[in-house]
C-alpha cells in the first residue's frame, strides 16, 4: 500500500460542507468539501502573499536578500510579459504573475514529501487554462471587435489557401487550453508517479535482505536524480504556462500576425 504510486493523488475531505442536490445516494449531487487539494491551494496562496508582503515590508532602497528574491520574481515575470505581449500586455501582469507563482509554488509544495500536488489534478490545470483562454477571447473581442477574428486568417496568405489555413488556425486555437492544461497536468502526474515507483523499489528491494539492499542502490540513485529533475520540471512548467499565457495574450492584443 505504501508503495502505491497512485495513492498520492487521492483527494480526501478534511471537512465536508454537505451535498447540494442529488438523491442522497453516494456519488449523486454536488458535494462540496475542504479537501487536501484545497488545503494546499490555500497554503500556496497564503505562502505567496505572506512572502511577498513580508519581504518587502522594509521597502528598502537597498534590498536585503529576501526582498531581492521578491523583486527578482517581479522583474522575471514583468520582463516575460513585456517581451511576449508588449507594454500593453502589462495590463495582464498581475494575472500572469499570479498564475506563475500559483503554479510554481504549488509544484514546489508538491516536491515536499506528504504534501499534496494540486497541479496534478486535470480539473485545476484545465480551469487555469480556461481562465487564460476566457481572458484572451474576451479581451480580444472587447479591444478589437470583429477584427479579433483576423487571428484565424494570417495576413499575406493567398486567397485560395485561406479556406485551408483558417480551419487549421481555429483548431490550433481551440486546442490551446487542452495543450496548456494537459502539459502541466501530465508533467506533474508522470513525474510524481515515476518518483514514487523508483523510491518504492528501494523499499521493496531493501526488505529482501542483503542482496536486495545492494540492488536497491540503483533505484535510490535514480530516485535522487529524478527528484532533481522534478524540481526542474516544476520550475520549467510554471515558466512555460506563464510564457504561453503571455503569448496568447499577445494574440488578443495584436490579432493580426
Amino acid at each position: 500500500m505504501a508503495n502505491d504510486p497512485i495513492h498520492q493523488f487521492v483527494i480526501y475531505d478534511i471537512f465536508s460542507f454537505g451535498t447540494i442536490g442529488g438523491d442522497g445516494t453516494e456519488g449523486s449531487g454536488i458535494s462540496l468539501a475542504f479537501t487536501n487539494s484545497s488545503l494546499f491551494m490555500a497554503l500556496t496562496t497564503l505562502t505567496i502573499c505572506a512572502y511577498l508582503i513580508l519581504t518587502t515590508r522594509r521597502r528598502g532602497l537597498i534590498p536585503n536578500r529576501w526582498q531581492l528574491t521578491s523583486e527578482m520574481a517581479y522583474e522575471f515575470v514583468a520582463n516575460m510579459v513585456r517581451s511576449n505581449a508588449g507594454t500593453e500586455g502589462m495590463k495582464f501582469f498581475p494575472l500572469v504573475f499570479s498564475l506563475f507563482m500559483f503554479i510554481f509554488i504549488g509544484n514546489m509544495f508538491g516536491m515536499i514529501p506528504y504534501f499534496y500536488t494540486f497541479t496534478s489534478q486535470i480539473i485545476v490545470t484545465f480551469a487555469l487554462a480556461m481562465l487564460v483562454m476566457t481572458v484572451v477571447v474576451a479581451y480580444g473581442f472587447i479591444k478589437n471587435g470583429p477584427k479579433f477574428l483576423k487571428l484565424f486568417v494570417p495576413s499575406g496568405v493567398p486567397g485560395y489557401i485561406v479556406p485551408i489555413v483558417t480551419p487549421i488556425e481555429v483548431i490550433s486555437f481551440l486546442s490551446r487550453p487542452i495543450s496548456l492544461s494537459v502539459r502541466l497536468f501530465g508533467n506533474m502526474l508522470a513525474g510524481h508517479i515515476t518518483l514514487k515507483v523508483f523510491t518504492g523499489f528501494v523499499v521493496s528491494l531493501a526488505s529482501l535482505g542483503a542482496v536486495g539492499i545492494v540492488g536497491a542502490v540503483l533505484p535510490l540513485l535514480m530516485g535522487v536524480a529524478i527528484t532533481a529533475l522534478e524540481f526542474m520540471v516544476s520550475t520549467v512548467q510554471a515558466y512555460v504556462f506563464a510564457v504561453l499565457t503571455s503569448m496568447y495574450l499577445n494574440d488578443a492584443i495584436h490579432p493580426s500576425h
Binding site: S38, M41, T44, T45, P94, L95, S98, I123, V124
Partner: peptide, 20 residues
C-alpha cells in the same frame, strides 16, 4: 471531487490575484 476543487481554486486564486 471537481466541484470542491473548482470552488477552492476559485477562492484561493481570486484571493491571490486580488492581493497581488
Amino acid at each position: 471531487t471537481y466541484p470542491s476543487q473548482l470552488l477552492w481554486l476559485v477562492i484561493t486564486f481570486a484571493v491571490l490575484y486580488f492581493v497581488m
